[in-house]
């Protein structure tokens, strides 16, 4: 196969992407364009419009034959290009083969429990993951998928076979609220939740709690908690406006969800049997 995938970033050591110390691989491109997305620059692929080029302070970006080229050596990671991009994308993408990613991350193996693939939506590149995971697992390292809920895992037993688990976002249980937040009714995510649970591959579920959205928050938390029980950790995440596009901050609020408010939902989840619910 040897397909390439667009890699946004590789973080050798991460303590926030699953159990233990993990290497996190972020893919570019997403099936969704959630209003509360904290890194909207990962949503689309670059269309080489060139809007980012003039603002690059070090000349790491230039136009070449109609394409935007990025020179990683000259880049100082100032993020000026991300701010300039009108297209929810990034020019700092490397197209890599699974084997190339493997060679780059293997020097972290002595220090990590495993890897987590994230995004964007890494499941856009399921074939790539099926190549990468066996290479990593051969070294005794675990492979976790950070899923946004768009991928129907029940239809891909092959992917489930080669991964150690999926950390799944359940963003909204109510179809209307879901359509508002992410642009679809969320049924696919709930189907995946069920399928992953049955397959024993559900590693974690995450839900973002929005300030003042009592009804919507409660419905999501109830649905998840009743379903997963104590099968896996349930992370209750506080909405934070940081990184959210300004136009949506106006819709979702400029306040961070209070810890106490989030804790009420964690406590509700625990009372419904999801004993491993906690606020992050």
């Amino acid at each position: 196969m040897n397909d390439q995938a667009p890699i946004n970033k590789i973080i050798p050591f991460s303590n926030v992407d699953g159990p233990g110390n993990r290497t996190s691989i972020f893919f570019q491109g997403c099936t969704y364009a959630c209003k509360f997305c904290h890194n909207p620059e990962t949503i689309r692929l670059c269309i080489h419009c060139g809007a980012c080029v003039p603002g690059c302070p070090t000349g790491a970006l230039r136009r070449e034959n109609g394409l935007v080229r990025w020179n990683a050596t000259d880049c100082v990671q100032c993020d000026a290009c991300l701010k300039a991009c009108p297209h929810m994308s990034s020019p700092r993408i490397r197209w890599m083969r699974a084997e190339e990613v493997f060679h780059e991350i293997r020097r972290a193996f002595p220090y990590i429990e495993g890897i987590t693939v994230s995004g964007g939506d890494c499941t856009l590149y399921a074939a790539f993951l099926k190549e990468l995971f066996p290479l990593v697992r051969a070294f005794g390292k675990t492979c976790l998928i950070d899923g946004n809920g768009a991928y129907d895992f029940t239809r891909d037993p092959e992917l489930l076979e080669v991964c150690d688990g999926v950390m799944l976002d359940i963003k909204a249980a109510d179809p209307e609220w879901s359509r508002f937040l992410i642009g679809n009714d969320g049924a696919c995510a709930l189907r995946s939740l069920d399928g992953l649970l049955r397959a024993g591959k559900l590693a974690e579920v995450r839900t973002v709690i929005f300030p003042g959205r009592d009804h919507e928050n409660e419905e999501t938390v109830r649905t998840v908690a009743q379903q997963i029980q104590n099968a896996c950790p349930y992370k209750i995440i506080r909405y934070r406006p940081f990184g959210v596009r300004t136009e949506f901050q106006a819709l979702l609020g400029e306040d961070t969800t209070e810890f106490e408010e989030a804790e009420r939902y964690a406590s509700l989840a625990r009372s419904l049997g999801a004993t491993k619910a906690f606020v992050v």
Binding site: N21, Y111, E113
Partner: peptide, 12 residues
């Protein structure tokens, strides 16, 4: 995440 720190220490 002390277990993440321990992974790093054990590795090194």
């Amino acid at each position: 995440t002390p277990e993440a720190v321990l992974s790093i220490i054990k590795g090194s």
